[in-house]
Amino acid sequence: MCLFRSGQTDKERYSSPGFTTEADLDDEGGLWPTAYAVTELGERAEQTIAELVRKAVS
């Protein structure tokens, strides 16, 4: 599951998409980030988020 926090309602400086333990993001090393800070939502950030979401639900 992917969760999004806008940063506006909780007075943070950035938005952050996060992933629960159900997300299919494990790697061979057993370590993966559960959240990513988004300081600017440009084309590259959108592509990265879309790829992470696709991988998480696979």
Rank of each mutant, 00 (worst) to 15 (best):
E40N: 11
A37D: 13
P33D: 09
A50S: 11
G42A: 14
T20S: 09
L31W: 13
L52N: 06
G7Y: 00
T34R: 15
I49P: 04
T48H: 13
Q47H: 10
K11E: 03
Q8R: 07
I49C: 11
A45N: 10
R54Y: 04
E40M: 06
S16P: 01
V53Y: 01
T9V: 08
T9K: 10
L3V: 03
E12R: 08
Y36L: 15
E46T: 00
Y36P: 01
T39H: 12
F19H: 01
E46N: 01
P17I: 14
A35M: 15
P17G: 07
T39C: 09
S15N: 00
T34I: 13
W32Y: 14
V53C: 11
E51D: 03
T34C: 06
E28V: 09
E22A: 04
I49A: 13
T20N: 06
R5V: 03
I49W: 13
K55R: 10
S58N: 12
E12D: 07
M1F: 03
Y36M: 15
T48V: 09
E40W: 03
G30S: 04
Y14V: 05
Q47V: 03
R13I: 06
S15V: 04
R44F: 04
E28R: 10
S6V: 05
L3M: 06
G18R: 13
A56Q: 01
G42E: 14
R13S: 07
A56E: 01
I49H: 08
E43P: 02
W32L: 06
L52H: 08
T21A: 15
L31T: 13
S58L: 09
A45K: 14
R44D: 15
K11W: 02
I49D: 10
A50T: 02
Y14K: 08
C2A: 11
L25H: 01
I49V: 15
R5P: 02
G18F: 02
P33C: 09
K55I: 06
T39R: 08
A56F: 02
K55A: 04
L25F: 04
